[in-house]
Computed example of a mutant assay.
Amino acid sequence: MALTKPNQQLRRDLKAIAFNLEQSCIDLSKLAEKLSDADAIAMMGLVGTLYEEADRLVGYAEEVKSGRLVRTKPE
Rank of each mutant, 00 (worst) to 15 (best):
K34E: 13
L57I: 02
A40M: 03
A32Y: 03
G48W: 05
L35Y: 08
A16Q: 15
S66T: 14
T49A: 13
A38L: 04
I41E: 15
V64A: 12
E22L: 09
Y60S: 11
P6R: 12
L50V: 11
A42Y: 02
M1I: 03
A32S: 14
E22S: 10
D55T: 09
E22K: 12
A40K: 06
R11M: 11
E33I: 01
T49G: 05
E33R: 08
L10F: 05
G48H: 03
G45N: 13
A32T: 04
L69Y: 11
E33G: 02
M43I: 10
E62V: 05
V70H: 04
I26R: 11
K65S: 07
T49D: 11
E22G: 02
T49P: 01
P74N: 10
A61F: 03
A61D: 09
S66H: 00
A18H: 03
S66G: 04
K15E: 14
G59N: 06
Q9S: 12
M1E: 10
I17D: 08
A18L: 02
A40W: 05
S24F: 01
N7S: 06
Q8A: 11
M1L: 07
N7Y: 04
D13N: 15
L10Y: 10
K34N: 10
K30Q: 14
N20V: 02
S66K: 13
N7T: 03
M44F: 07
M1S: 12
V70M: 11
L14M: 08
L28E: 13
F19W: 00
A2Q: 14
T72M: 08
L57D: 05
R71I: 06
K5Q: 14
M43G: 01
G48Q: 06
R11W: 04
T72P: 00
L3H: 09
L3S: 05
L46F: 09
V70P: 00
T4D: 09
L57E: 00
F19T: 14
A42D: 07
G67C: 11
K5M: 10
V70T: 15
N20C: 04
I17P: 00
K15I: 06
L31A: 14
